[in-house]
Amino acid sequence: MEYQVIKAEGESRSFPDGSEFMSNASESSEIVVLIGSNAGDALGALSDQESKRAILVELGTECLALHTGESRGREGSNILGFARFRLGNDAPSDLVELVCQPNSSEEAIDSAIQLFKEAGLEVSVCRDFAGRIIDRLVRPYYNEALRRLDEGLATADDLDLTLKLGLGYPEGPIELLERSGLADHHDVTKPLFEVYGERAYAPARRAIVAKQRTQK
């Protein structure tokens, strides 16, 4: 499937420089993929938007609506959002979260799914909410693991071991956060706390300390 890539300013977390996805792109196509940490800002400069089959905008922690606007719950067009799930500085996972609005074009959604599948990725479709699927679900779990470590529920090793042996998780929460970065966890969960106002998203003490240490 043909697609055009427009690289906006800032490194893309989904498709870092030199990735095959970019070298396989065409000069122009009716499917346009905007990537880079400021991909949404490049949307305004894209001409002839209505004639495209799909315009896919790489998202950070923001909602797609920041770039498209919203209208009484009836928003939606050929412009969709996406991000490959990625923990801290780990390599991007093979999972693309594809962000739709209530009236997103079915054709755009189908094209996007096909395009990413052909690139060897898997796609989960979700609506335009902060944290999409994975961060929305795992950040409370990570915060809770850090809090319960502070409260002495078990040692860090035993917490990790229990979740690996009991549920088959490839990594326990504490080792995962140490590896991918507690400060990074802070940066992901804090905006979710601001949006949802739920304590579960409030950065745990250990994440706050780690963040503060990066600013010393």
């Binding site: 999972l95 989960s124 998780y169």
Partner: peptide
């Protein structure tokens, strides 16, 4: 979609 995301994104079995 939730199951796929959690399995592929995090490697849960």
């Amino acid at each position: 979609d939730v199951d796929r995301a959690i399995k592929k994104g995090l490697g849960y079995p």
